[in-house]
Design a protein around this nucleic acid. Structure first.
Length: 208
DNA sequence: CGTTGGATTGGCT
DNA sequence: GCCAATCCAACGC
């Protein structure tokens, strides 16, 4: 069992937290008694004054957790069927967070596979909604503290050197595409496939 | 109060 | 490559 990240780790700008979350370990003791764990390989930063962020137009019932203390999980529902999870960052009162997009399964793969309906390891947690599905994360976990013992935590892992960090435009957004706030471990096979971002020049290189 | 479209995914052409 | 699935927050009237 690793050591949990500190509150101070999350009390920084989302861009720094997103980059530093690479290599850390998402841990989920499930109600059934299994421990699920996966190493984060891809994350995106969303700041308050960021047209792509849910917090851009101020606090609402949906995004309230984003404006709360750092280190909690903000879970949202989208496309009528999917959940995605974020780690809240920055100071309390500031609406910023990091979307956790993909992870490399480490423990509890059998349970993840059952929940995901596939045995293919590279499809278990490679995508924000896939990750939530594999980890049984839904809106009932919204607001859970990631730095305290509980149903969802993030623990220290092997740190990832700058040379292994890739960055590029965030996935699936229409505004704020000029901010290259998607961070991933370069070449890691568990990074999500994503989708091309509108407005990119034809033939521009992949963003890793 | 009605409309719109989304930080996605998987299945089909 | 295209599109349906399926809910609901945000926004406009």
């Amino acid at each position: 069992m690793g050591r949990r990240l500190s509150r101070r780790f999350f009390a920084r700008p989302a861009t720094e937290v997103a980059r530093d979350l690479l290599g850390t370990v998402l841990v989920r003791p499930t109600p059934g008694g299994t421990r699920l764990a996966a190493r984060i390989v891809e994350a995106e930063a969303y700041e308050e004054r960021d047209p792509a962020s849910h917090s851009f137009r101020g606090e609402t019932a949906r995004n309230a957790v984003m404006f709360g203390p750092p280190g909690r999980v903000y879970v949202y529902f989208t496309y009528g069927m999917h959940f995605c999870m974020n780690a809240v960052t920055g100071a309390e009162g500031e609406g910023s967070a990091v979307l956790i997009r993909a992870a490399e399964p480490l423990e509890g793969l059998e349970e993840m596979a059952a929940r995901r309906g596939t045995d293919l390891v590279h499809l278990l947690c490679s995508g924000p909604a896939r990750l939530c599905r594999a980890f049984d994360v839904d809106r009932t976990l919204n607001g859970v503290d990631l730095v305290a013992p509980g149903p969802l935590m993030i623990e220290r892992g092997r740190s990832v050197p700058d040379a292994e960090v890739a960055s590029g435009p965030r996935v699936g957004i229409r505004r704020g595409t000029e901010r290259h706030w998607r961070f991933s471990i370069a070449g890691n096979p568990f990074v999500s496939p994503g989708r091309p971002v509108a407005g990119r020049a034809p033939g521009s290189p992949p963003t890793g």
